[in-house]
């Protein structure tokens, strides 16, 4: 068996990923605390609001960095949607996660210099980074300047709708985080992927 080392994650990506991870964690914790408005001694409401605002701005700026990075560097090519045979690829990867990997089958889409993510991974990242994130950033900014929001939509307060939408998006991103963290542990060595996102180097066994 040979081990190939690939430089998967450039510095800018790792820096963004680090800030984003910290920011998102703060956002989730403070978001939940505001959702239930638990005035716990650990984190009181006004502190939660303040932290949520700061982390929100940090993550939004980080998002711009990520967006620009993918626009201007080669990293963007890993995020291009290829609709042809997409369904089949997703099903194959899902089948591997649910069944194949327990039978010691080889992964259907081995990672290489040309393929940084498996199909499920790739499309969940696209969904989160190019749909959920922009929406959560826009609704979050709107809530930061609530006077900009349309006052009433069919008898419903515009702020109320924005807030519900924002928290629903935040919730979906939290669910993504759980799955993201778990799936990262899949592999021969459960810690390998966590190490890669810190060092940038990804090891592939042939």
């Amino acid at each position: 068996m040979t081990t190939e080392k690939l430089y998967f994650y450039p510095v800018w990506l790792r820096v963004w990923h680090g800030f984003n991870a910290l920011g998102i964690l703060v956002l989730i914790v403070t978001g939940i605390s505001m959702q239930w408005s638990i005035d716990s001694p650990l984190i009181n409401f006004s502190l939660a609001v303040k932290l949520h605002n700061i982390a929100g701005v940090v993550v939004s700026i980080g998002y711009l960095l990520f967006f620009a990075g993918n626009l201007f560097t080669v990293n963007g090519k890993f995020y291009r949607v290829k609709p042809k045979g997409l369904g089949k690829r997703l099903v194959r990867q899902a089948r591997y996660y649910l069944c194949g990997m327990f039978k010691n089958e080889e992964p259907p889409f081995p990672l290489s210099e040309k393929r940084k993510f498996n199909p499920l991974q790739k499309y969940s990242y696209i969904l989160v980074m190019y749909l959920l994130m922009p929406l959560v950033v826009i609704t979050g900014l709107a809530l930061l300047f609530p006077e900009l929001i349309i006052e009433e939509v069919y008898h419903l307060s515009g702020i109320f709708l924005t807030a519900v939408f924002h928290s629903a998006l935040g919730f979906l991103i939290s669910i993504f985080l759980i799955v993201h963290l778990y799936v990262a542990s899949i592999g021969k060595n459960p810690l390998k992927n966590y190490r890669s996102i810190v060092t940038g180097w990804h090891e592939i066994n042939h």
């Binding site: 505001m34 959702q35 239930w36 408005s37 409401f45 809530l143 609530p146 069919y154 008898h155 419903l156 307060s157 702020i159 109320f160 807030a163 519900v164 928290s167 629903a168």
Partner: peptide, 24 residues
């Protein structure tokens, strides 16, 4: 009865920070 949709969705959800739509 005014704004039936509003009544259903907003029945128990009053405020930002506690936007608890029971169904959601």
């Amino acid at each position: 009865g005014k704004g039936a949709l509003g009544a259903v969705l907003q029945n128990e959800s009053y405020l930002i920070g506690a936007n608890q739509v029971p169904a959601l």
